[in-house]
Simulated scan of single mutants.
Amino acid sequence: MNNNSSNLERCADADKDNLQKPDIYLRHLPCPESIPQQAFTFFEKIRENLSRTIQVGEYHPGFILWSKKLKEFISLYGFSFTKEDHIKLIKLYLSIISSTDISYSVAQICFDSLIELLQKIELLTRDDLTIDWWIFYRWVKRIKNHQHKTFVMVPSLKEFETVILHCTQSCSPYFSSTATQELLDEFCPHLCPFDRIAICDTMQIFDYFLPMNLPPHLHDQGFKLWLPEFFNLWENINNETIWEAYLVNLFSRLAWYNIGYIDWTPWLNQIFTHFLRGFSLPIGKTQKTTKKFIYSMGDVAQWTVAM
Rank of each mutant, 00 (worst) to 15 (best):
F79M: 07
F279N: 08
K71F: 03
G57F: 00
F43S: 05
M203L: 06
K141R: 15
L165R: 15
K144M: 12
S113L: 07
P155L: 11
D101P: 09
F175M: 02
L124Q: 09
I97G: 07
P228N: 06
K149M: 15
L276P: 01
S296Y: 07
G284P: 05
S34D: 06
H60W: 08
V248A: 06
T202I: 04
L281V: 07
I143H: 08
R253E: 01
T180H: 02
C11V: 09
N49A: 08
G284Y: 06
L233D: 00
Y25T: 14
S98N: 15
K141P: 07
Q55D: 01
G57Q: 03
Y295C: 06
A306T: 02
T168S: 11
L76G: 00
I199Y: 01
I259D: 00
A179P: 07
P282Y: 05
S280V: 11
D15Q: 12
W267F: 13
N4G: 05
T82S: 05
R52T: 01
H86I: 04
S105R: 14
F63K: 00
H219W: 07
D263H: 04
I96C: 04
W267E: 07
W234L: 14
M307I: 12
K68Y: 01
A301M: 13
R142P: 02
N232S: 10
L214E: 07
P216D: 03
S5F: 08
T289R: 13
L92A: 11
H148R: 14
Y174A: 04
S156K: 14
P193Y: 00
G260Y: 06
S80V: 07
C110D: 05
I294Q: 06
M212N: 03
M1W: 11
N232R: 09
I283Y: 12
S105Q: 14
I90G: 02
T286L: 14
S296Q: 11
V152F: 11
C31L: 11
H86V: 01
L191S: 00
V300Q: 02
E48Q: 14
H219K: 10
F231E: 02
C11W: 09
E229N: 06
C31V: 09
N236L: 04
Q20V: 09
I121M: 13
S170K: 15
K288P: 04
S170M: 15
V305F: 14
Q147F: 10
R277P: 00
L89Y: 08
M297F: 13
H60A: 08
E229V: 10
F275T: 02
R10H: 04
P215A: 02
D195V: 09
L281H: 08
T82G: 04
F43V: 05
N2A: 12
T286V: 15
L225D: 04
W264R: 09
E84K: 12
Y137I: 07
V248Y: 00
E116Y: 11
K45N: 06
G78C: 01
T125Y: 04
L218E: 13
S67D: 01
Y208E: 01
G260V: 09
Y295E: 03
L123I: 09
F73A: 04
I131E: 01
I271H: 06
Y295H: 11
I262Y: 07
D299H: 14
E116T: 15
D85H: 15
V140F: 13
Y137T: 06
Q108K: 14
E240A: 11
I35M: 02
L94R: 06
E84D: 07
D112C: 11
K149C: 11
Y25W: 12
D17T: 15
K69C: 07
K68W: 00
W139I: 13
Y104S: 10
D263S: 03
I54C: 02
W234K: 08
Q181R: 10
